[in-house]
Design a protein around this nucleic acid. Structure first.
Length: 469
RNA sequence: GGCGCUGUAGCCAAGUGGUCUAAGGCGGAAGUCUGCAAAACUUCUAUUCGUCGGUUCGAAUCCGACCGGCGCCUCCA
């Protein structure tokens, strides 16, 4: 049984899908006006882990992530770069997919673009207008929050209190300060679409309501996003969808905590802004994923050079064990010691952690514990081929399958020319060692290290690993 | 002002009534192995969970007060 913390009820609840074994999940994706940053990466990676775990548990997950390709920020960028909005969006969508792939984030079932669902958005706005919830002021259409009884149920806000607050922008056209734009009238030079209210473009919130409805239905299971989206974005999505469809919109809301840099909020003006690809230049995708998985998804997390380095080390530790298993499996004279190693117990431990509101930190601890056990057994020689296969399977299903923490066994059956050359050098070095010519043997090891190949001697022979990607 | 989160070892972090004299990672110390390394393994590195009270047979875990950190309420993952 999976327990999931629901922002809507502010407590952990048992996950009961609306239509098992299917689970429909929507994740708020990026506005494509720039490369995405390491904070975005956290949300994307954690939603990926949630999705992978649901699949691990046997659910058939339909995972949708939207791409906001019409928006103020994109328009601004297009003016700066003297390009069309569309060109800017297309460029960053392309780059988005490159980063997603490098971070080993599984492809979504759909990546709907806002501009391809304009008609669905118009239909929804029309519906709201007919119900008297939306009003048109000179080509701008707003949502009247006072018409929706439950407004504020997700964020715990109260319309009247918010009205008194000083931070809400005053807009003469709105009836209530919290009313938000469903349709924005086109200004000179902006991209626009024809609509019953004239030329314009959709507001930001309506796209998620319209696209999730179209692709996942009027009610679906899980909606995820960054913590900051709770208000107003998700609150507004609920208001739009439930008012238009007269049905509960989403059953479980999950929100990912923020990432700070050296205890400060990440921002371009502070100069502590990192794109995901910048981090990927120095650290592996696995280390980044481990870094995030080591903390609970809901809490804030601090990012620093020191911490990501620690994660890289941790990753290497698991990877070493995994590589060792794969190397052993190539060995033809394996020990044939019977083991009574209880794999089920390890699966249970992993699932127990993940079942409890996706406690990845605890799940990762299980992986480290398992890794230590396996190392111990191999070192002692108390194993057989079946043990290795089962251990590999465990890593494949949990550490890699759910968390994405391992590099696959690249040194496949077909050795490359490079591999063969390394083997020759190892042979020469071992001969030198036998002749106690340590100057030569150390030189070979040092020189190889310089080009990123680490040699390791063990009882069964010399193995090597490549540190470069 | 409103809503919410949070304070656990040198650092990161899980645990939210007894199995906790508190997982796991990084860092540090010693040892086994090794020609030397590396990797791996073993042991050690919080009698204590911001402070002070309370509830309880029993609290890191519940309640209260206080001190500290943070987020949202405006575009933002």
């Amino acid at each position: 049984m999976i327990k999931i913390y629901n922002t809507l009820t502010k407590q952990k609840e048992e996950l009961i899908p609306l239509n098992p074994p299917n689970i429909r999940m929507y994740m708020c994706g990026p506005t494509v006006y720039d490369y995405f940053h390491i904070g975005n990466a956290r949300s994307f990676i954690m939603s990926d882990i949630v999705r992978r775990y649901l699949e691990y548990k046997g659910y058939n997950v339909t995972f949708v992530m939207n791409l906001t390709d019409v928006d103020d920020k994109i328009i601004k960028k297009s003016i700066e770069e003297n390009k069309t909005s569309k060109e800017v969006a297309e460029f960053y969508i392309n780059e988005f997919f490159k980063d997603i792939e490098r971070l080993k984030i599984k492809r979504a079932s759909f990546y709907p673009k806002a501009t391809e669902f304009i008609n669905d958005m118009i239909d929804m706005i029309k519906k709201l207008e007919q119900k008297g919830i939306a009003y048109n002021v000179d080509g701008n259409v707003f949502y009247d929050v006072t018409k929706f009884q439950d407004y504020g149920k997700l964020s715990g806000k109260n319309i009247n209190e918010l009205e008194a607050g000083s931070r809400v922008e005053i807009n003469e056209e709105k009836k209530h300060p919290l009313d938000f734009a469903l349709w924005k009238k086109a200004k000179e030079g902006e991209p626009f679409w024809e609509s019953p209210w004239g030329k314009g473009r959709p507001g930001w919130h309506i796209e998620c309501s319209a696209m999730s409805c179209k692709l996942l239905g009027e009610s679906f299971d899980i909606h995820a996003g960054g913590h900051d989206l709770i208000f107003p974005h998700h609150e507004n999505e609920i208001a739009q969808s439930e008012a238009a469809n007269q049905k509960p919109f989403v059953k479980y809301w999950i929100h990912f905590g923020f990432l700070n840099i050296n205890e400060e909020k990440m921002s371009k003006s502070l100069g502590n802004f990192f794109t995901a690809r910048e981090i990927l230049e120095s650290y592996s995708a696995e280390a980044i994923r481990l870094f995030f998985a080591q903390a609970h998804y809901r809490g804030p997390v601090n990012f620093s050079e020191e911490l990501i380095k620690a994660a890289e080390k941790g990753f290497e530790k698991i990877q070493n064990t995994y590589d060792r298993i794969n190397d052993e499996l190539k060995n033809e004279n394996l020990p044939q010691v019977e083991t009574d190693f209880n794999f089920n117990q390890w699966y249970e431990k992993f699932e127990q952690a993940m079942d409890d509101d996706f406690n990845t930190a605890s799940a990762v601890a299980t992986i480290f514990d398992f890794s230590r056990e396996v190392n111990k057994i191999i070192s002692e020689g108390n194993y057989n081929k079946n043990f290795l296969l089962k251990s590999k399977e465990y890593f494949d299903k949990t550490a890699e399958g759910v968390l994405g923490l391992l590099k696959s066994d690249i040194s496949s059956n077909q050795p490359s020319l490079e591999d063969e050359l390394i083997e020759i050098l190892i042979k020469i070095r071992n001969e030198a060692k036998q002749n106690k010519n340590y100057t030569l043997s150390d030189k070979i090891r040092d020189e190889l290290k310089k080009i990123g190949i680490i040699l390791q001697d063990s009882k069964t022979g010399t193995t090597y690993k490549k540190t470069k990607k």
